[in-house]
Design a protein around this nucleic acid. Structure first.
Ligand code: MN
Ligand code: MN
Ligand code: MN
Ligand code: MN
Lengths: 222, 222
DNA sequence: AAAATCATTTAGACAAATCTAAAAAAATAT
DNA sequence: ATATTTTTTTAGATTTGTCTAAATGATTTT
């Protein structure tokens, strides 16, 4: 029932690498976790013994139903802590992940459920990623990339698909964060850049490289 | 600069066992940590190498100045989290310790300083124990045992020297917690029990065994 | 002061998580 | 269809933290 920090990190990484139905490879996981392939193989055997993994050697692997459940628990803890750090302790957007990497391994069901309640049952973390509820259920935004929305229809930023400091630097420079309202003024087909603006702010340009990571949803009406 | 969870648990336990000036023995530490004396000896060698310990074999040991500094950092984290759990997440008094045992090992200076700020720089944890500030300084209550206060002088409960569920059961039954105002009505020299009462509540009796763990301070005048 | 007891350390083992180097299997190219 | 390359696994070693059993040092009793 309880897993080591190392096991949890493997489980979480496998969850993120496997899509729906997909298989994960030893090399991909070793790259993700910055370990050697041989270490991955060792851990795969252990996770298979614990029935968290569907794995035959040389055939790739993916989480079992139980493994997925464990992964969602870890992700729930990670994202709830990210929300706490951002919302309550005023950590900036890009600082929360590293600290949450540690906090996610504190295992107390009561702690997490009380934290969830204290935070008001948030459904999305500061990066716009969904927070699984205590049953592992995750909400999904009806979201659309800013490159695909029609001109002059304001929508709300709900997700940023890349959290590198470099991208966040551009977004912050333009005062774009989760929850910002934006509308597209013009699309330039030459380089697929966009001219966008906030409700009453100045217009500015997003390159295609930036825009493809910015996702929008309908503005909440209540 | 960074220590393992195990090292931190040893350092903290040594800090609690050594008074001012005192030496700690291998057996005492092994009892405290529920390990074998041989394991303690192994760790002592390691902590000595890291200059956290003053230790010559067969002679007992105590923390070096650096070791004490590390211990105060761990205790700061532990007690700030206990305060958070109690104050913000509404954990009951006796539940906080176990969860704080895990949270104390999350090492991010920024996290702890922000948490401290968020909590309003509390100086005492839910058990009335002092929380070291970021320089390791700890406040001290001018406190006195309830067995020693004069009759009919209301004072405030500021510390409970034993946190067993059994004692906490009695205290909760009598609605006594940190911050409760109590005065002693009568002392019975036969068994050293006390009749005490709250401001407008009924009188009740505390046995000597209970009373000796209940510590009082002057009522704050602001 | 020697014997008995108690506390502490040493010696050797083990599990967990990692590594390097070599072997084996699978995939790709010729 | 072979040969070559890539991926994965195995074999054996290392570090950390723990253990048991035996040896040694310190203390207490007689
Ligand atoms: Mn994250
Ligand atoms: Mn992690
Ligand atoms: Mn505690
Ligand atoms: Mn601890």
């Amino acid at each position: 029932m309880l897993y080591t920090v190392s096991e949890e990190n493997y489980i979480k990484a496998i969850f993120h690498l496997q899509g729906d139905e997909g298989m994960v490879t030893t090399n991909a996981l070793s790259a993700e976790l910055q370990t050697r392939p041989a270490s991955v193989t060792d851990m795969l055997k252990k996770l298979k013994t614990k029935k968290l993994l569907v794995y035959e050697k040389y055939q790739g692997f993916r989480l079992s139903a139980e493994g997925r459940k464990v992964a969602l628990g870890i992700i729930r803890r990670h994202r709830l802590w990210e929300f706490f750090l951002s919302e309550k302790l005023r950590f900036s957007w890009e600082e929360v992940h590293e600290v949450a990497e540690q906090l996610e391994h504190v295992t107390s069901v009561k702690l997490i459920d009380k934290l969830d309640e204290y935070l008001g049952y948030p459904r999305f973390d500061p990066h716009g990623d969904p927070i699984p509820d205590r049953n592992g259920k995750i909400a999904t935004h009806e979201r659309i990339c800013i490159t695909a929305i029609p001109p002059d229809h304001p929508m709300e930023v709900c997700h940023v698909g890349n959290q590198s400091p470099e991208l966040l630097d551009i977004l912050r420079h333009n005062h774009i964060a989760i929850g910002t309202y934006l509308s597209v003024r013009k699309k330039f087909s030459f380089d697929n850049s966009l001219e966008v603006c906030t409700a009453n702010g100045p217009a500015f340009v997003l390159s295609e490289a930036v825009a493809k990571h910015v996702w929008m949803k309908k503005i909440d009406t209540i």
